[in-house]
Nucleic acid binder design. Structure first.
Length: 888
RNA sequence: GGGCGAAUAGCUCAGUGGGAGAGCACCUGGCUUACACCCAGGGGGUCGCAGGUUCGAGCCCUGUUUCGCCCACCA
């Protein structure tokens, strides 16, 4: 010990700044696939390269890093692998915006190649900001293994996956209806559609004239799509319309005709007019009707949802204009039959909120059914388990009803689809290596313009990052990974797809365990969003409270399956806890200055020493169990409770007597214990607050063989400390006595400076022995002038009374010190409470059914309570009588 | 239309069959030589509602109300 003094108050900024580089320099994060020991692997859910740290990241990092640090300290061969996602559409939009703002150019002005070059430049300059932010949080990631989904290595994996699936017939190209965003001008998968419910809209009725006279009235929320109608459907059994099936309708605004068809699947005769206009090229249901009846597909919108030439006089209009003009034209012709308010559901673009247009377009798809079956089986047979368990149902339901996955996007930034078309012979070539010419006719080729859905490459992440398709040592040592920790919001987007891809391509599950954390909300439970203005910035919090406090807060609030309502007061509270730890460290280091730490316990451990070691053992069990079961709240709170309310509140105070005293044996024992429990406490807390614990641990006296960093030190394991029930009972008794005296002092208003004489009557010899052993501690902690313990006798006149454990009487003389009336009221209250409790117990014991059917142990326990409460009560009554005597 | 979750102290939440808990807030008293980011003491709850199972229910079952989320192609 160099005698260096700590600052009085804890300043997280200074402490937290100094350790990350230290850990890096000493290679503390580095994984080695050849190392012995069970593997424990977490690959980070890759944040977007464009991303800035938000609360969700802070939570995910807190949980993952706590698990990784814990297992690393337990001796596992850990790998925590970092990396980022190229995030196709998001990144492209960011760079496009910057391009527009800085140079007034669109991506089309630049052209594809130069634009992609710009995105790379942007990524190099601004892209990895989030990595530095992860370091601020203390994430113990192995940066030498950092990956990016567009790296050459991962691009190779994407190519391998695509070609393999294509060869197996699991990737195909087809022209069908797809959700298309007219603003992003790209197709989207079903998952990227944001469903908006209960939108206030309008339902219009209008009449279609029938060829040869008559009309049929249809209802619609999208009148403009009538420009693309190719049928009106009615129910085949509907007597109103049966006769009309097969007749033709004359399009009132365009020069064409189309039929009335009977379709029992689409049409509900009870809804609206019972006749439905059919637009096969812009509605998913109508598309199916079109297939069933061989109807014409008439796309009326281009990829920006502007009406095309087929709309004749209505060409060149956006969707809203087209609606207005069509309604006007129908009105002029006297065909409008009414309108009414109607609530409906709409699909919007997840990214830009634009109303999606179902559009007919050729896209690439993954045939998901066979993949989903494997993913389902792996969860059913337990190769992968999902926590919280409630999410298993959600996972299964989605996979059981899965639709084919549209993986092509009309973007520039992303993995280009490895398909080449020959305009000469019309073939499509999909290969691992770029083909120089058409393998069919030798003619020139053009590559598919589209890129892959970002989630396609994300789906390969657990193995592409480990070198797949090459059989690397990493893949062999670390696949399947151990835990996939992420938010439940991307269960379908990501988790389910990794399961499908990993099982199919690598042949084993990508992870043994899925742990899905909840969403972070504001203190009122609302989603954080820029528009609401309720976003809490984790970096702002770390700046003001420290990363340790933020991490500890998130860990303590992380209850399985629940969203987290985050209020700043929590963080402030755990900031105070950091200060508490700091000061406990300060005290300890002050006491241990110049002391050399023995490797094994010295003789003469006091009761207090043995007691705190017992409490430590229980904390060790709870923290390990909590972490093992992904109950971070239980683990962190167990460590918190031990450190503050057992170590600081009681042990530190009790240790002062031997530490300050002149008995060298007692002093040595106290120093040893103090050092040991603080060390162990820091280890238990380290997964949650890595910086502060490292700072203090580094200053503690070292043992030979100690590693360079706390993060490499051994995590306390259950069963290494002997339990000492006698010490625990003795100290607990003393605590109860001290608590009773303090309560009397406080409630009766005994002046703080007063040092009253305490008399204890304890009929049991065991109690007297225990109290004698704790004599000095009781005197100090209860601030007494003297303490006398006797088997029994007369209570001093005018004393306050409390009873501990049924028979131990606490007698504190108050005559002439305070108003005895106050004590009288206090006693009455205590008696009332005890009576109430006793009545409850007696009621139970008076029930024959309870005696007959409850387990013997439970009955025995209640009998014990009855006796203790009864004894307490009679002693309190005696005290009351005596007090009334003194008053009367 | 299905599925899921929540409802416990003023607030935020733990507590999966036997004595209602934590943190914050509140009240009282204390600058006691680690810490006022602290210490000690205290007040405060018919555990959403109604039934049921059980010797015993905050916890299990049924129904119900309110709130939230997810999934779903009703014009």
């Amino acid at each position: 010990m160099d005698g260096e003094l700590l600052e009085k108050g804890y300043e997280p900024q200074a402490v937290e700044a100094r350790w990350y580089d230290f850990w890096m320099e000493h290679g503390c994060f580095a994984a080695d696939p050849h190392r012995p020991g069970p593997a424990f692997v977490i690959v980070i859910p890759p944040p977007n390269v464009t991303g800035v740290l938000h609360m969700g990241h802070a939570l995910t990092i807190t949980i993952q890093d706590a698990l990784i640090r814990w297992r690393r300290m337990c001796g596992d061969n850990t790998l925590y692998l970092p990396g980022t996602d190229h995030a196709g559409i998001a990144t492209q939009m960011v760079v496009e915006r910057a391009l527009k703002a800085d140079e007034g150019l669109s991506r089309h002005d630049l052209g594809r190649g130069p634009f992609i070059e710009r995105v790379w430049q942007w990524k190099e300059r601004h892209g990895n900001r989030i990595n530095d932010q992860l370091k601020v949080l203390g994430a113990s990631l192995d940066w030498d293994r950092e990956r990016f989904t567009m790296d050459a290595l991962l691009t190779r994996a994407v190519r391998e996956a695509f070609v393999t699936l294509h060869e197996q017939g699991l990737i195909y190209r087809d022209a069908k209806l797809i959700n298309f965003c007219p603003r992003c001008t790209t197709a989207l998968s079903d998952l990227e559609v944001r469903h908006e419910e209960n939108v206030a809209g309008t339902m219009w009725d209008f009449a279609y004239p029938l060829e040869g006279g008559g009309e049929i009235v249809v209802s619609t929320t999208r009148p403009e799509t009538m420009l693309g109608d190719s049928a009106v459907a009615v129910h085949p059994d509907d007597p109103r319309y049966q006769a009309l099936i097969g007749r033709r309708i004359v399009h009132p605004l365009l020069s064409r005709t189309f039929p009335v068809v009977g379709d029992a699947i689409l049409v509900d005769p009870a809804f609206g007019t019972g006749a439905v206009k059919v637009t096969p090229a812009h509605d998913f249901n109508d598309f199916e009707v079109g297939r069933r009846h061989g109807l014409e597909l008439i796309p009326i919108f281009d990829d920006r949802a502007v009406t095309t030439a087929v709309c004749g006089a209505f060409a060149g209009l956006d969707r809203d204009e087209a609606r207005v003009r069509v309604l006007a034209a129908l009105g002029e012709q006297g065909l409008l039959r009414g309108e009414r308010p109607h609530t409906m559901a709409l699909g919007r673009c997840q990214r830009c909120a634009t109303l999606l247009e179902p559009t007919l377009s050729p896209q690439w798809y993954v045939r998901t059914k066979p993949l989903a079956e494997q993913a389902l089986a792996a969860v059913e047979d337990g190769r992968t388990t999902i926590l919280p368990e409630s999410q298993v149902k959600v996972y299964k339901h989605w996979l059981e009803n899965i639709q084919d996955w549209c993986i092509s996007r009309q973007l520039w930034w992303g993995h280009r689809i490895p398909a080449w078309y020959c305009d000469g012979c019309g073939t499509c070539t999909v290969t691992r290596e770029d083909p120089p010419c058409c393998p069919g006719c030798g003619g020139p080729l053009r590559q598919d313009e589209d890129v892959l859905d970002t989630w396609f490459s994300s789906g390969l992440w657990p193995f592409s990052t480990l070198g797949w398709p090459a059989q690397t040592p990493e893949l062999q040592a670390y696949y399947p990974t151990t835990v996939m920790e992420t938010g439940y919001d991307i269960l379908f987007f990501w988790v389910a797809r990794m399961m499908m891809m990993g099982l199919h391509l690598v042949g084993d599950v990508p992870f043994r365990r899925v742990y899905l954390h909840g969403m972070i909300r504001d203190s009122r439970g609302e989603k954080m969003s820029k528009t609401r203005g309720n976003v809490i910035d984790p970096l702002d919090l770390t700046a003001r409270y420290g990363s340790d406090a933020l991490r500890f807060t998130l860990a303590s609030l992380a209850v399985q399956g629940r969203d987290i309502k985050l209020a700043e007061e929590w963080i402030a509270g755990y900031r105070a806890f950091c200060n508490k730890i700091w000061n406990a460290g300060r005290f300890t280091l002050g006491q241990l200055a110049g002391w050399s730490r023995p490797a094994s316990p010295p003789p003469g451990l006091s009761l207090a020493d043995r007691w705190i070691l017992g409490r430590l053992e229980r904390a060790i069990v709870a923290v390990n169990e909590g972490l093992a079961n992904f109950k971070l709240n239980e683990a962190s709170l167990a460590a918190y409770h031990f450190f503050w309310h057992e170590l600081c509140d009681w042990y530190l105070e009790m240790s002062k007597a031997p530490l300050y005293g002149d008995d060298p044996v007692a002093q040595q024992a106290a120093r040893y214990t103090l050092c040991h429990v603080l060390d162990a406490g820091l280890r238990l807390l380290h997964p949650f607050m890595p910086f502060l614990t490292e700072e203090l641990w580094q200053k503690l006296p070292r043992l030979p063989g100690d590693p360079v960093s706390l993060m490499l030190a051994r995590f306390p394991q259950p069963g290494e400390l002997p339990l000492d029930p006698e010490a625990e009972e003795t100290v607990e008794l003393a605590h109860e006595v001290i608590g009773a005296v303090r309560a009397i002092r406080s409630e009766c208003g005994v002046p703080p400076a007063a040092r009253p004489a305490l008399l204890i009557h304890a009929p049991a010899e065991t109690s007297r022995r225990r109290l004698a052993a704790m004599h000095a501690q009781i005197v100090t902690q209860a601030r007494l002038g003297s303490l006398e313990v006797a088997a029994g006798g007369e209570a001093p006149r005018g004393s306050a009374k409390a009873v501990v454990g049924g028979t131990v009487e606490i007698l504190l003389p108050l005559l002439g010190v305070v108003d005895l009336e106050v004590e009288l009221a206090r006693l009455h209250k205590g008696i009332g409470k005890t009576e109430q409790e006793l009545a409850g117990v007696r009621k139970k014991l008076g029930n024959a059914d309870f005696l007959g059917r409850a387990p013997a142990a439970v009955v025995e326990k209640e009998r014990g309570r009855e006796q203790e409460l009864g004894e307490t009560l009679s002693r309190l009554h005696a005290g009351l009588a005596r007090l009334q005597q003194a008053l009367g």
